[in-house]
Design a protein around this nucleic acid. Structure first.
Length: 508
RNA sequence: GUUCCCAUCGUCUAGAGGCCUAGGACACUCCCCUUUCACGGGAGUAACCCGGGUUCGAAUCCCGGUGGGAACGCCA
């Protein structure tokens, strides 16, 4: 039975060397979609063999970000599973065993070259227009001699003796990719151990990505490897390791990478690409994932999402639509504008109570607001969110738009100032002050309508000439939600408070 | 530099030789809705990288060029 016919097992294998970035989230998403679509298993494996760069904090953060996005891997360091451990730093013995096997078969050999000499040789080769492959200096050292050096306390990394043959990768996205022979050369599979504590087996140092990745994917029974295109060239090395062990190949799918607006690989440099950052700014996981899915994947023409919009769909819909056929070959540029639009769509369409609950922490980030909100009823808070959600694209925008309802001293916009100092409006202002004082404390949309009518009647103003001055005098703005929605949320006292604050500010 | 990958509106994409006068989405412009703004509805501007083939016919197939991306690390 080939890998393609076995029950699906896919994995996402981040290295904990920083936050989870959107490219990683997208890889996780594609794996998740494929697993769920086929009733398969989603594995999370932490690739932390680089002890210099991997940190526990990063691992915690990456796992937390994945969780916040809503991913629930079936097997992971936390959840466990039938192929533990799920952290490469805890699997060193296994790598040691296979590395030793390659060494014993002379498929791998000790390389005593220094880092500096290697770098020099590589740079020289590039300068001369030659492919920067290892020159094989240590490949010629007789194994017995090498072992004697190691036994005498010498330190060396292990290099894989590359096969001189062409490899063809049958990639689900890219099609058949040919790797000509001898372009990679002998590559390291384990590092030079600094000391005894650094050895995973007698005289063998910490393993390197291309090696443990293959060992793990094999041992963990991974059937489909869905990952970024940046791993495509590496695949020639990995193919050789599969070959050396005679292991069955999983199905590969190399998805095109995500690029920043500068057409460069999305990184910390070009914009906030961290999932953490996006989430903290109030992008919704649903929107982020929906957007990321469409970046390099097309669901096909025959879909009819429940949203009614051709590009907005639920996770369940995404799963049912997903197919590797729709995966794109060319890199895609991350377009924040579209993300913003999509996030706005979700803010408007998700249940009000849900959005309100998720927005709460953004309000409470301001200490005075936390107490202010506690003074109001839950219904009131819901009402505020309802009237303002339409104009917001991120959760972060909600408190900004709600500021007027919470703080008694509204900021006065320049356009509103012009309305407020216009002598033509004085009749409206005095009528407004008189009429508002007659109002009961609890306001309704009907009362606000009546208020506007009577202000119109006694001032003689109508249309925009009536409406704008009222808005400016009460909110300090020339735009915003309907006043008949705004006033009831404020109540008479708060309304008067704002009116007098605006008056005082204008006199000053 | 070397190897690999890729190429349709500004951006994400549909398109598997005639269904293409190239479709959709975001953005942009205009109109409608609205006594404001936003939301919503409608319309519009906008693309097959270039050059050769193959073919009755090419966005689609082939070759070359150009452009972009990735990898080339004792990182992953």
């Amino acid at each position: 039975m080939s890998a393609a016919q076995k029950p699906v097992r896919v994995r996402f294998a981040p290295s904990p060397t920083g936050y989870l970035h959107v490219g990683g989230a997208r890889s996780m998403l594609f794996n998740h979609l494929y697993a769920r679509k086929h009733g398969g298993t989603l594995v999370l494996r932490i690739e932390d063999t680089d002890q210099e760069r991997s940190t526990k904090e990063s691992e915690v953060m990456v796992i937390s970000d994945l969780k916040r996005l809503g991913f629930k891997p079936d097997e992971s360091p936390e959840a466990g599973g039938p192929y533990p451990p799920y952290r490469q730093s805890e699997r060193l013995k296994m790598y040691g065993k296979y590395a030793k096997e390659l060494l014993d078969r002379d498929q791998a050999y000790y390389c005593f070259c220094t880092d500096d000499s290697l770098t020099q040789k590589r740079e020289l080769a590039m300068k001369l227009g030659r492919p920067p492959v290892y020159d094989g200096t240590c490949a010629k050292i007789p194994p017995a001699e090498a072992r004697a050096k190691i036994a005498a306390g010498g330190k060396a990394g292990l290099r894989f003796r590359a096969f001189s043959k062409e490899y063809i990768l049958h990639d689900q996205v890219k099609g058949d990719v040919r790797f000509p022979p001898d372009v990679v050369g002998d590559f390291f599979i384990t590092r030079t151990p600094k000391d005894k504590a650094n050895e995973i087996a007698e005289g063998i140092g910490m393993p390197v990505y291309n090696f443990c990745c293959v060992v793990d994917d094999h041992l963990m029974g991974i059937t489909h490897v869905i990952r970024g295109e940046d791993h495509l060239s590496n695949n020639s090395r990995q193919l050789q390791i599969y070959d050396a062990f005679g292991w069955e190949l999983p199905v590969f799918a190399h998805v095109a990478v995500v690029l920043g607006s500068d057409r460069q690989k999305l990184s910390k440099r070009n914009g906030d690409s961290s999932v953490f950052e996006y989430l903290n700014n109030g992008y919704l996981p649903e929107a982020l994932l929906n957007f990321l899915a469409l970046l390099g994947w097309n669901p096909g023409a025959d879909i009819k999402p429940s949203s009614g919009h051709p590009e907005i769909f639920t996770m369940d819909e995404m799963i049912s639509y997903f197919s590797m056929d729709g995966l794109q070959k060319a890199p895609a540029i991350f377009d924040v504008q579209k993300l913003n639009w999509m996030n706005g769509q979700y803010i408007r369409s998700l249940p009000l109570a849900d959005i309100a609950a998720r927005a709460r922490s953004f309000f409470e980030a301001i200490p005075e607001w936390k107490t202010a909100l506690e003074a109001h009823s839950p219904e009131w808070y819901l009402g505020v969110i309802e009237t303002i959600r339409g104009e917001c694209t991120m959760l972060k925008d909600l408190p900004i738009a709600a500021k007027f309802f919470i703080e008694p001293n509204p900021a006065i916009e320049d356009a509103a100032k012009a309305v407020l100092i216009d002598p033509a409006n004085t009749a409206v202002f005095s009528a407004l002050t008189a009429e508002v004082s007659k109002l009961p404390e609890v306001l309704t949309a009907e009362l606000v309508d009546a208020l506007q009518k009577s202000v119109g009647a006694s001032s003689g103003a109508k249309g925009k000439g009536l409406f704008m001055p009222i808005r400016a005098a009460t909110t300090g703005r020339t735009h915003g939600p309907e006043l008949k929605k705004v006033f009831p949320l404020l109540g008479k006292t708060a309304l008067l408070e704002r009116m007098s604050a605006i008056q005082t500010a204008m006199k000053a």
